[in-house]
Nucleic acid binder design. Structure first.
Lengths: 192, 192
DNA sequence: GTCTATAAAAAGATAGAC
DNA sequence: GTCTATCTTTTTATAGAC
């Protein structure tokens, strides 16, 4: 086990990363100024730049941190053994209670498809990884008994699509879209 | 029938709207400068502002135009009578051949969830309208015989979610995601 | 570590010439 | 209708004091 003690500087960095994620969610990457992020933690823009060399580097580190936390929260081991379709439904329920996180990923992932975006490689890689992981979950739970002759990787791609698409509509619907209920319906379709 | 003749000025406006949509797709709304849009049609930034009073107004008009063209392209009448689930599969196929359009809507719709975004009202209203329309299509084609006890509006919400979610993964996958095939699989699930 | 000062660039918008 | 000139604001980033 490595040393997990945190210096004061590490704590400050963590604060900044949280503030950055919130601000990116509210304003988008380009719309979020370093000054606005710095203000949230009681720093000036230049004070913030003492911890991160540039805005792009800050974004990359924000996304790295998010991944680590999500991995912890999902309780999915390296081999993915603890995950299940039910766990995914639970994840959707959890997400329905944290609009900020959902909004940040919706905004940043879509923004990343634009030209030379600093987060593009991250999201390309992330979707590939998540597809593989979800495909393993589907294969373990349904075997090859998927409706309509789908294979597990195709089912995984659809599962992710439903999650992302529901999040966008949910963010734009003022309570008209019941994300967890709809996701459960979709899982029911998959189970046949 | 109203007079459909176009003045030179109208043509210029149409050119600018096309250029704006392309630039928004490539750079996002905040990342697209008026100067970059103007350059595409051989104008200066100030020349462009002769046709549209502000960048926000330009965005609103771009989205209006898009809606009109989509309505034409889908051939959906006011009562929705000519639409079907098969027509939606065809739409997904068409979209797989026009990355720019898909990218523009992915980028702009997600951006619209940020604070005080000028396109937010447009997308909130659009999703509501499309849910109603798709629900009518589902009801006409499947009646109330939907799997898992879903109602037509819930099915419509899922259909839209799958479309949007697949588009995002498709844009970020370098050919690894077959959008039309996956959508057809999903429709097959709905049909039971 | 955090600040002040400041540079340097870019953007949206307005005024007015032609 | 389109341009040049210009204003004003905002933003990222650097240099250096404390």
């Amino acid at each position: 086990m490595v040393d997990r003690r945190r210096s004061r500087g590490d704590e400050r960095r963590a604060e900044i990363l949280d503030a950055a994620l919130e601000t990116f969610a509210e304003k988008g990457f380009r719309g979020a100024s370093l000054a606005a992020i710095a203000e949230r933690v009681g720093l000036t823009q230049q004070g913030l730049l003492h911890y991160f060399p540039s805005k792009e580097e800050l974004l990359v580190e924000v996304l790295k941190l998010r991944d680590e936390r999500d991995t912890d929260a999902l309780g999915d081991n390296a081999d993915g053994s603890t995950m299940s379709l039910n766990a995914l439904s639970t994840l959707v329920e959890v997400n329905a209670g944290r609009r900020g996180i959902v909004q940040s990923f919706t905004v940043l992932s879509a923004d990343s498809v634009t030209d030379d975006h600093p987060a593009r490689d991250y999201f390309v890689d992330r979707y590939r990884r998540v597809r593989r992981k979800f495909a393993a979950v589907v294969a373990a739970e349904c075997g090859d008994q998927l409706p309509s002759g789908m294979d597990p990787e195709q089912a995984a791609t659809l599962i992710i699509a439903v999650m992302d698409g529901l999040q966008l509509q949910w963010l734009l619907s003022d309570g008209e879209v019941d994300m967890p209920a709809l996701f459960r319906h979709f899982v029911a379709l998959l189970r046949d």
